[in-house]
Every structure is written in C-alpha cells, then in structure tokens.
C-alpha cells in the first residue's frame, strides 16, 4: 500500500452561531487520509460528521483549524441528501458536475456513460460524483436510505467501484459494522461537541469485499471494541 498522505485535517473546530445561541459541533479534530485508503468517520447523529465533510469540501469556509490537501488532488463530495433534478434526464443529472465544471468533453462523457453502464442507473449519485474524476471521494452516509439487504449489496458495489477506479474515500456513517467491513481506518467521534475518541486501524484477516469481510475472524473483535467506545 502506497502511504502518501494526501489530505490532512488539523485541529479542526466548528461552531454554529444562531440567534438561539451557539452550537459547538466539532472540537479540535485531527486526522490524515492516505492515497487509495478507505477511511471512515463514525459517531452518533448530530455529532458533526456532515459538518466536517462540508468543511473539507470547501462548502463551508468558516471554521478554525487547517485543512491541507495535496496539490492537484481533486475532491468530490456526495451529499447525505439525495438531489435529483427532475427537469433533466438521468444522464444529464449524472453529467451535471462535469457541465458545471465545464469539463463536458467527449472523453469525460464517454467515461461517465461507461460508469453508468458498468454500475447501473441506481448508482447515479455515486457516478455523478465519480464523473468529475476526483482523487478523493467524500461520502456522507451513502447507504442510509436503503434497507439492510440492499445496503449490503450496494456497499459491496460501491467498494468495488472505488477500489477499481483507484480512488481514495472518506466515508461518514453511523453504522459500525458497515464501517469495519469497508474501511482501512476508522475515526470514532464522540457525542457533540465531537472530539476524536480514537482512531482504529482495521486489519481484518483475509480482507476482501465488504460482505465477505463480515465473515472475517476478527470482525467481531473490532465490532466489540468499537461498540465499547460509544
């Protein structure tokens, strides 16, 4: 594994201000993401996971701390909520990112259509995010809307896409088993204001796809360890 550090988050803090008072959402969080690594962030709802991705993706520029992204590293962000433009066709929806970035070349279009054919229409949100050829994908609870069966299947597919396309991923989830089955490393956040409780390296024996990883002998070991932490 090539361990070049391409993204690092340093002492990140985020406070939301409103008339009703202030909410400290993220408190002094630091972690690194290496190239082609699959990193998970888990923590209870409302602890500030989406806030961290908003900041890394530059949607939110009001924060304390430092975000360092390596030169020439492109980040794409798949939002927690689903946004489909009903006046566009599915293909136009998937090509939207390229259109906005003014990179709607024949080559990029063909690449996107290839992805669509390979992974299916159902994955249009992930493909819309992949179409702009990012190096790092930020995925915010990518499977939370799905039922358990579909979730297992789709997480397997997405894992495959990311590995086959040699992408780096930073995935937010609140499902511990899902995180263990997919990630190389897991950042565990506390309740709000979220601080890092611990960062786990996941070293599963016979590591393969997420579904099979759940059969790994030390899967349970990590599950117990992480549940204990919450």
């Amino acid at each position: 594994m090539n361990l070049t550090n391409i993204l690092n988050v340093n002492n990140l803090s985020k406070t939301y201000h409103s008339k009703n008072g202030e909410i400290i959402a993220v408190n002094n969080v630091s972690f690194n993401v290496n190239k082609e690594e699959f990193v998970g962030i888990i923590g209870p709802s409302g602890c500030g996971k989406s806030s961290i991705l908003n900041i890394i993706s530059n949607l939110d520029t009001k924060y304390k701390g430092r975000i360092n992204v390596n030169k020439n590293i492109k980040i794409a962000y798949m939002l927690q909520e689903d946004a489909l433009f009903p006046w566009l066709t599915i293909l136009e929806n998937v090509l939207l990112g390229l259109k906005i970035k003014k990179q709607l070349t024949k080559e990029n279009k063909d690449y996107t259509i290839m992805l669509l054919k390979k992974y299916g229409l159902y994955e249009f949100r992930k493909i819309r995010t992949l179409a702009v050829k990012p190096d790092i994908l930020l995925l915010d609870e990518p499977f939370s809307a799905l039922d358990y069966q579909t979730r297992l299947k789709v997480s397997d597919d997405v894992y495959k896409i990311i590995k086959e396309e040699h992408k780096t991923a930073l995935m937010v989830t609140h499902d511990i088993s899902e995180a263990i089955s997919m990630c190389d490393r897991i950042v565990v956040l506390s309740k709000r204001p979220s601080i890092i409780k611990k960062i786990y390296d996941i070293n599963l024996e016979n590591k393969s796809t997420p579904i099979l990883n759940r059969e790994s002998p030390n899967f349970t070991y990590y599950t117990i360890k992480l549940y204990g932490r919450r």
């Binding site: 949607l59 939002l79 909520e81 946004a83 433009f85």
Partner: peptide
C-alpha cells in the same frame, strides 16, 4: 439542496 449540490461542484 439542489443549490448545495451544485456548490459541491464549485
């Protein structure tokens, strides 16, 4: 949300 989505693509 649609606006936010477009913003993720700068």
């Amino acid at each position: 949300l649609k606006i936010k989505l477009l913003k993720t693509f700068n």
